[in-house]
Amino acid sequence: MEFGIFVVFAALALAGSLTVVLGHNPVHCALGLVLALVSVAVFFLQQDAQLLAAVQVIVYAGAVVVLFLFVIMLLGVDREETLHEPIRYQRPAALALGAIVLAEVLFLAGRTWATGTPSARGPLEEDAGYNNIETVARTLFTDFLWPFEITAALLVIAVVGGVVLARRSGQPAELVDEGDAATGESGTNAGSSPSERAPAGGPALSRMAPPAASERDTEAAS
């Protein structure tokens, strides 16, 4: 039974990840990603990681992939990608690399992988009647307290970074390069007409005082 579940979801995970890699439409790729992530969540459940299975579905399938889809739709890039390859030997090289890694994995497949000391940070199921959530939580707040605190910094960074990048500004007059010119590449700066770039009421940053952005921007920030 357990093996049967594994086989089914392993097939789904592989199908999903291959869709991500081979799909021509980004929306299909995102859906393939969901399939792979949910299958992995099933494997988590099979291996006594109930909390992580739930978090996996909520955070990944619920938030991350939705964000992906949102960006795909927002940018209107849900069309087929050209398969033109700018770097000549990259694709064969990547496939060769993959083959080597896979060969090594198969070489290792029949052997023991987990050779370490068991229960270095405490057993998975404690006797005192803790469930998986309590066990993980206890470890997070004791052994892993320091990385846990550092991840707080990560969330602040994500908020500041997201706001500062996604805020609208930069009127055409302010743009100081054509992008390609700076990297010495000839290419078309497709469709960068001013009308598209200047947002309605989009603020230009004040010349004298950089932090003094407009009201709208600061509202986005707060």
């Binding site: 978090v55 229960s119 270095a120 998975l124 066990t135 993980v136 470890t139 997070l140 052994d143 892993f144």
Partner: peptide, 17 residues
């Protein structure tokens, strides 16, 4: 997660978090 299960070690699950 697999190693956590195999080694009976809660550390592996905390890391995934």
């Amino acid at each position: 997660v697999t190693f956590a299960r195999e080694l009976d070690d809660v550390g592996g699950q905390a890391i995934v978090f």
